[in-house]
Amino acid sequence: MTFYINEEQMEDYLFKIVLIGDSAVGKSNLLARFARDEFYSNSKSTIGVEFQTQKIDIEGKEIKAQIWDTAGQERFRAVTSAYYRGAVGALLVYDISRRQTFDSIGRWLNELHTHSDMNVVTILVGNKSDLKDAREVSTAEGKVLAEAQGLFFMETSALDSSNVSAAFQTVVKEIYNILSRKVILVQEHKKQDTSWMENGKTIVLQGETNHEADSRTWRAKCCSS
């Protein structure tokens, strides 16, 4: 099912965005920094699901992003199909000071793609950029992987705040842009099907068949840090 929305309705909608990545890469702290401007050198390890709703201003419009956070240990990946449901954006996080967390990115991408459609706006996030002396993954490597997979890319530090808002905003803005394009589409197909209006409030992004070919291209942008 494909939902279209018009511009006036955009503000009432929630963009569900999921944080994924190995344990202890800083998912919860990225969320804490973004939503409450807080950072805890030790915060409780997440087991179930936590989320925060944050208002974001995009082109003068207030958009609500609901950001979900969960456990990172490998065995939890199979518990999370409900976690991904309805997500339109994802932050795929690794820790630049631990190569192993970068090596897992492929598996997380597979996980994301089995649970949601290919159009989830995804940004690859190399977190803990403040740990300069302990760096194990270069910025260039992150960029190359992001380009190969058609993901946005940014290096962040939840500790010193750098790029945290920018990473979330990149995802939200792109979702917004895709929806704006759909608004134009829906105006062309006006009144063909209005049943979508009564549908649930969560946005579902789905590529149209005729747009499938370039769906990878529009995500293959790269924001350097």
């Binding site: 970068f102 090596d103 897992s104 990115i105 492929g106 598996r107 991408l109 597979n110 490597e141 190359v144 992987l145 190969a148 997979q149």
Partner: peptide, 9 residues
């Protein structure tokens, strides 16, 4: 391209 490989042009 196995996505675990960082260089996959």
């Amino acid at each position: 391209s196995p996505s675990v490989s960082p260089v996959a042009p």
